[in-house]
Design a protein around this nucleic acid. Sequence first.
DNA 1: TTCCTAATTAGGAAAAACCCTAAATGCAAG
DNA 2: CTTGCATTTAGGGTTTTTCCTAATTAGGAA
Lengths: 96, 96
Amino acid sequence: MNTLFKALSHPVRRRIIEMLRRGPMASGDIAGAFDMTWPTVTGHLNALKEAGLVSPERDGTTIRYRLDISAVEEALAFLLSITGARAPADGDKDRD
Amino acid sequence: MNTLFKALSHPVRRRIIEMLRRGPMASGDIAGAFDMTWPTVTGHLNALKEAGLVSPERDGTTIRYRLDISAVEEALAFLLSITGARAPADGDKDRD
DNA sequence: TTCCTAATTAGGAAAAACCCTAAATGCAAG
DNA sequence: CTTGCATTTAGGGTTTTTCCTAATTAGGAA
């Protein structure tokens, strides 16, 4: 949960996640979409992999990254537990 | 969105959010729940405030922090857009 | 083997985050 | 005004993040 939210806390990494929403992409194609060096993007991909958000698969000389939805749902579960299960308490009378 | 996910990326701050789920709490009570100094907790509260996740309200000498659900829903919306699900419904967040 | 391309790891500088102690602020009561 | 309590801000040391360039690994083709 800790590395997961930390991975989501960088705009480049969130953008990568959005890109992978349509399907797996090669590392070079991902790196080419940003205005930073390839090694830097590799670092972000490693952070996402560490968080379980993506997984790489080799195909010859190219490496494709695929989005791992279940990790996203893990973060989703935390946020839903916040918005979905709110108990009424004494200074909290003005709910919608 | 950037400060929002960054705020969520620290375990102490996520725990504060969980604590505030039941209602506003005084700064001192929040700080007392952790094994760190009060100024450090104040720093975390500032990070949460910066992200729009909590808002402080003064009552005499004590300051109470209240959870701001709409910011949570903002993060929720991003994750839901990834999994492809719909936006959170209005009547879904007020039941116990 | 050698060469080329795809991609990563290594090393390090700059910036930010984290947590502490000490000092300051704000409010209320005497 | 002065004291006291609740809380925040200031300053600084240590660790982590972020990004770069240079070097390295890995696979395919000649």
